[in-house]
Nucleic acid binder design. Structure first.
Lengths: 118, 118
DNA sequence: TTAATAGTTAACCAGATGGTTAAATATTCT
DNA sequence: AGAATATTTAACCATCTGGTTAACTATTAA
């Protein structure tokens, strides 16, 4: 069993729950990028993108380095590892889906605790 | 490359971003549970738990069956599979962390003068 | 020194989120 | 029928979120 920091997972999953932020991460996966570059494909203002970057940064999903006025962002995937491990604990459930369907059918034909007849 | 439904991922990750909901899923991993049972260990009102359950249900992470007045919840892990696949695309980044550190050092000792592109 | 560029901060707004209590609904028990 | 139980719905509230525009800071270029 793996131990997780709840706070960390909160931030990580919350960061991943936004499609703009996922797209930003996807871009960073192809190399380091500055803010303006990351903003270009997104139909929103620069401050909006700036906020998304701050969320990702707080979640530890990117690292920022300044070269003069240019902020260069680098993907930092470690929190994703934690998230992946958390989700991984449930793998048996999505892999055992047929068994669970069997359970389900069994239960619906003969309903569980305290309930009899229909 | 895997294809993802953005909407689906939004809902899944958002659902996972709350510790109460993660705990509920953990409980359901040990077997089907009714609302009152799921609520007991959480220091909050029943309606609050009810809302969390609705969020999980909307995210497709649980299935609800009614036996009279009792609502029995069952873990539904398929959306977690999608989430896991999405995160998995980044595995190489958290596993290749040493290489990226090398990149980092290389770049910091000799910053990109004006244009990027090493 | 002045202008242009990269980015952030501030103030604001609408809508979502996570909680509450009180009341309503549905079912089961006596 | 009436009381108890399981759960939801409604109304409300504070805070967070994701966006906006306007103004500011910092750096680079002319």
């Amino acid at each position: 069993m793996v131990k997780y920091s709840s706070q960390m997972l909160n931030r990580t999953f919350a960061a991943l729950a936004d499609p703009t932020r996922r797209r930003i991460l996807a871009h960073l996966a192809r190399g380091d990028r500055c803010v303006t570059h990351l903003a270009r494909p997104h139909a929103m203002s620069l401050p909006a993108v700036s906020k998304h970057l701050r969320v990702l940064e707080k979640a530890g999903l990117l690292r920022r380095r300044r070269y003069g006025r240019v902020h260069e962002m680098q993907l930092e995937a470690r929190p994703l590892k934690q998230a992946a491990q958390w989700v991984e604990e449930y793998r048996k459930f999505w892999e055992g889906s047929l068994d669970r369907l069997a359970d389900y059918l069994e239960k619906t034909t003969q309903p569980p605790p305290k309930k009899r007849g229909k």
